[in-house]
């Protein structure tokens, strides 16, 4: 990761700007022959979501779709689920409101006639409940795939660029596979969600956003483990 700061020394050491971080993405700063281009290249680098410049707000750089949960929106840069990036949702148990987290955005997308693809969901997505949540079933597609084919399917759906959101359930994904999905997501404007068990929280992940969903005493708790473009400690949210 690259730091560009006007006052490097003044950076407080206790507030590390980086939350749980992925492998550093290579950002090249090769000198350009002409100075004008140089400035343009520098501006490009500064706009990179992984570059943090003190005293500037980066919120407007992230293309996002509101989650439908105001508290979560204020915590996320761009105010919602990032487009063209992988969002990882780590779930402690089934049935603690993990799908309810994404249902509002799926309703928004399907009503805008964008296609939502569920790849190898662990249970039957129950049509009456989905319809009651406002999801237009005509734009919802369920794909049955074996574990080995699920990655391929997800990548194809993301790269095709004709889906508004792609949801995956990948309990055994490794870093390399997630990295491929993240790259595929970057090539499209789709929302890419991957649901994994919360035991995977300790593993590194290339996802742009990682949320852990767990059951609290009387409500579901959401914890932001990692979020590209956002700095500082995140509060635990209750939904």
């Amino acid at each position: 990761m690259l730091l560009l700061s006007d006052s490097f020394d003044a950076l407080p050491s206790d507030t590390s700007p980086f939350t749980a971080s992925a492998a550093p993405a290579p950002v090249s700063l090769r000198p350009q022959p002409r100075p004008r281009r140089d400035e343009a290249a520098l501006a490009d680098v500064l706009r990179h979501p992984q570059v943090w410049r003190r005293g500037t707000a980066l919120q407007n750089r992230v293309d996002a779709v509101p989650t439908g949960c105001a508290e979560l929106d204020t915590e996320l840069p761009g105010g919602g689920w990032p487009r063209g990036a992988l969002s990882e949702i780590l779930v402690e148990h089934d049935g603690i409101g993990e799908f309810g987290l994404v249902a509002p955005v799926l309703a928004t997308l399907t009503r805008a006639r964008q296609r939502v693809v569920l790849i190898a969901p662990p249970y039957i997505p129950y049509a009456p409940a989905l319809a009651a949540a406002g999801i237009d079933l005509a734009h919802l597609v369920r794909i049955d795939a074996q574990a080995a084919d699920a990655y391929w399917t997800a990548e194809q759906c993301l790269r095709a660029g004709c889906c508004g959101a792609v949801l995956n359930w990948l309990p055994n994904a490794d870093y390399r596979q997630l990295r491929r999905l993240q790259l595929a997501a970057e090539s499209s404007a789709a929302l890419a969600f991957v649901f994994r068990p919360s035991g995977a929280a300790a593993q590194p992940s290339p996802a742009a956003l990682r949320l852990r969903v767990s059951a609290g005493a009387d409500a579901t708790e959401i914890e932001i483990l990692k979020c590209r473009g956002r700095f500082g400690e995140a509060p635990r949210l209750r939904a």
Binding site: A127, P128, V141, R142, A145, Q156, C157, A160, G161, C162
Partner: peptide
């Protein structure tokens, strides 16, 4: 964008089987 969807659906069906890609109705 819907122009790409038939091609994608065909590609998925070719690999996963004819019944793998389904819609849901209530």
């Amino acid at each position: 964008e819907a122009l790409d969807w038939p091609a994608l659906a065909e590609r998925l069906r070719a690999r996963l089987g004819d019944t793998a890609v389904q819609g849901i109705a209530s």
